[in-house]
Design a protein around this nucleic acid. Structure first.
Lengths: 254, 254
DNA sequence: GATAGGCCATGACGTAACGTCAAGGTCAAG
DNA sequence: CTTGACCTTGACGTTACGTCATGGCCTATC
């Protein structure tokens, strides 16, 4: 029948198995995200079951909103960043969801105000109502915690920091958080030598992230401590127990 | 001082007032969405307070997710489509929100399964968990109500129908819905002459939308009647009272 | 042996909503 | 006369592909 008997599939068949289009496969191949295991002599792509597994991982990560470029690096890198990446992605999704909730509420409000408005001011009515909701979060509630200078510096840092640095930082955070979680779980004293060492590393990482800028670190501190104003669904990337531990350990360092 | 004293602003000042960038103003100008009231002799853009009002309307509609091209037509067109457009947009946002909720739940599940998985199968664990959530809605829960043929035909229709037709349809729906709401509110008998006339128009519009295709209309009917499975936040673009009225009126027509 | 039809390939261009960069014009202050 | 702040337009980059267009490969059929 087909020349693709033992676990190898040509483009169309493979695409159908995975639920994507052939053009998507071409694209993933070109950007190096999913290169087919082999090619036939005539150049036809041949995909294996291992390729299918990788594609499913890709699609899973894409579903939770990762960019393809990010997915490529996640799949290539060491295993640790996965946890951290998922947690960070969670906060992004939670923010987007919050934005959509505001938009929904804004539409509902706009509809009823539209019913009350007379012909001439319909647009103003809608614009006004939505503007109110828009300003409620201004697209990015975290920014409210920073001073204008802090905001600018943060944006600047985000633009200029290369992603290797970002990922190294994420890895460092992941390791430290894991250790803090473990310490909190096994009853280590926050004020002990080990606890204070963890607190030291924590503060060092914060300083590395904020690049020692007071405007940025002030906003960051407020953001994390003002739990009552977080949007629904937003979480710290570490547990309450770990938070209590590290807070106590930092205090013990004085 | 500036040459822009009496209610006219140059690009930077105007952008600051409205909270957008100058480049955005350039872009809106080029696509004809917001053309400045005037130009100075040297070609500098001059914006008026009326421009600011329009820009605020644009930003409001953009906040609830309308595309710029759509916004342009909404602001140009007759007032009626605004209500309908808002209601339709609501369902889209509600769907997106639902998707994000699934993604959040998927991440939470993935995290805990990640804690249980050993090194070698971490990726499979995550991919598997997320795949489950992904399939729960398959990006588009409405499609579950259609047969494969119905889905294809719907997609085909969406590709080929020009937006003027779509908007004419929306206007027709808006008018009809408004009349049905009114009839339901003022106690008109569904079985009366007027009620059956409304039902007739309703069925005609459905036939126009489905283009008389049985696969499409079957799916559509199931979708609207299976209220218990709608995602949270999803609503009919008409009230329960109107729904009861039109159902009874259709029944009266036999 | 020619041809029709199905699958495959690559490459160019389009999408949405701008950001970024580049090259250059305008104008008031020093 | 230069500096610096502001303005202009145009070209290109971004994301994740879809949509042609063109042409090769291969098999079945006439």
């Amino acid at each position: 029948m087909e020349p693709t008997a033992r676990g190898l599939y040509r483009a169309k068949e493979f695409a159908a198995k995975a639920g994507v289009t052939v053009r998507t496969l071409h694209f993933y191949d070109r950007i190096g995200l999913l290169v087919p295991t082999a090619r036939e002599a005539n150049g036809y792509r041949l995909y294996s079951d291992a390729d299918l597994e990788r594609l499913e991982q890709i699609l899973a990560l894409a579903f939770v909103g990762f960019e393809l470029d990010r997915i490529k690096r996640l799949l290539a890198g060491p295993p640790l960043p996965l946890e951290v990446a998922l947690r960070l992605q969670r906060t992004i999704i939670a923010q987007e969801k919050h934005r959509l909730e505001l938009a929904l509420a804004a539409i509902d409000e706009a509809e009823s105000s539209l019913a009350r408005a007379d012909e001439s001011e319909r647009w103003q009515a809608v614009a006004h109502v939505i503007k109110v909701f828009k300003m409620q979060n201004d697209y990015n509630w975290t920014e409210n915690y920073y001073s204008p200078e802090g905001r600018e510096k943060l944006a600047e840092m985000r633009r200029t920091t290369p992603h290797e640095t970002v990922e190294a930082g994420e890895r460092a955070w992941a390791e430290l958080i894991a250790e803090v979680e473990a310490a909190a779980a096994n009853g280590t004293e926050p004020a002990s030598e080990a606890g204070r060492a963890l607190a030291q590393r924590w503060c060092d990482l914060v300083r590395a992230f904020t690049q020692d800028d007071p405007d940025v670190s002030a906003g960051l501190n407020q953001l994390w401590s003002d739990q009552t104003h977080w949007p629904t669904g937003f979480k710290r990337p570490w547990s309450d127990a770990a938070d209590a531990f590290i807070t106590a350990a930092k205090a013990a360092r004085g």
